[in-house]
Design a protein around this nucleic acid. Structure first.
Lengths: 236, 236
DNA sequence: GCCGCAGAGTGAACAGCGTTAACTGTTAAC
DNA sequence: GTTAACAGTTAACGCTGTTCACTCTGCGGC
């Protein structure tokens, strides 16, 4: 059976994204040019406009794909190792993110590197990457919420945080499956520190102090896990 | 007295960098083009090659200037408010960095946003921005070291950190004015968390959770200051 | 079974980019 | 007063994303 017209279109579309990614890992975002992609699969630049309305759209599609791939990888990691201990699962997740980032620095840079300051644009919530990013974030959020609901961890009181911060955190209580502001604060801390740490390592900003940040990351992971009331496994 | 030849050269050089910065704040790094700068001061693009050997060099000079400006601003902040309490000074410094970042997001992005993964280049230590960045970092380092030497804060033992991490940290003991690995670890934490936090806020990655990260930053600053044994002033 | 139309792809072109080369004035120095 | 360095220009090259007009191919409707 010959490939139908739609199949052929889907196939070349996949080829385009494949070539784009190959260029990405080879030379960073800057190397993913319209002409370079076209050159890669032996056709002329305007031909790509049959598949993407612009260069930016191509990059956007690439971003979505990468987010989904990362999300799937993390979910698979969770499923494969069905440890009943949620702390161990969170530990696995955090390490999985770091491993992915270190194994795919170019892709990680595209996803998490300087996502444009975006001054005060309101309608920036429906740009392609945003939903995929939310799906990715939801993986961590879900697990942290599970941890909370299994064994609520000690968290700062509302008096400690102050009314302004509490009001903002409380607004996210629904999203965090009913967690109280103090617990959301700790969840936010977890993400903030994990994210910051991985970014700094991948982007080489820790290099001046530590040539191999692995041990430091491990120690930090233990610290931030502790804040969530779980004694993370430190597998020597 | 007429301006000498050297003065004129210095003047246009300053004009170039001024125009470059104007474009930077107006439209981000991408807006700082050779032709755009030339257009800004009414001359042709090749004329700029009398002042900078390449576009990259121009950006590099801009980076150095911005680092120095930021460093000077932080030092001035320290001098103006000569609080003898080192904790208060560190608090002031951290807040000063955040204020500068929020007031100059485009400049901050240029300095701290995704500084190229830079795979395994060895000779990247002498690129223009690096020394300026080190001078900037030294401001924080010096103050933290002062804090330590005034009143050594409790720090994790070498057994807690593990031999691998301790070995790496110990290598920086000289740079950190003789602080022990455990204390350097906490100093590194301070910088890591402060830096990560500000980046996330400026780059809008906290926006999904907090529309105004000020209160959150304040709370975090208190936390990370606590780790250095200082009870940070929580004003009002 | 032929027609027609949508889709895929091409070639030429445009505007903008960083950069280079050859050239023209001005200006300071010996 | 001559000379040489300097600031600046014009023209051009190769690169980028993008558009337009065009061709060719193959599937669907009559």
């Amino acid at each position: 059976m010959e490939p139908s017209r739609r199949d052929r279109r889907a196939a070349t579309l996949a080829e385009i994204k494949s070539a784009a990614r190959r260029l990405l890992v080879g030379g960073g975002v800057a190397a993913v040019g319209l002409r370079a992609v076209a050159r890669e699969l032996g056709l002329t630049p305007p031909a790509l406009y049959r598949y993407f309305p612009s260069h930016e759209a191509l990059i956007g599609a690439l971003i979505v794909d990468l987010y989904d791939e990362l999300t799937a990888a993390l979910l698979a990691l969770q499923d494969n190792d069905a440890d009943p201990d949620l702390g161990a699962r969170l530990y696995l997740l955090a390490n999985g993110l770091r491993d992915w980032a270190l194994a795919h620095p170019a892709e990680f840079s595209l996803l998490f590197g300087t996502p444009i300051p975006d001054p005060d644009a309101d309608g920036h919530e429906d740009l392609p990457g945003h939903q995929a990013a939310m799906r990715f974030a939801a993986v961590f959020k879900a697990l942290v919420a599970q941890v909370w609901h299994q064994k609520p961890f000690p968290h700062p009181s509302e008096d400690d945080l102050g009314p302004v911060l509490v009001a903002q955190l409380a607004r996210k209580s629904e999203y965090f499956d009913g967690m109280p502001p103090g617990a959301i604060y700790l969840a936010l801390n977890y993400w903030t520190r994990l994210y910051g740490l991985i970014c700094m390592e991948v982007f080489g900003q820790l290099h001046w102090a530590l040539e191999d940040a692995g041990a430091y990351f491990e120690a930090q992971l233990f610290e931030i896990g502790e804040a969530l009331g779980l004694d993370c496994p430190v597998p020597e």
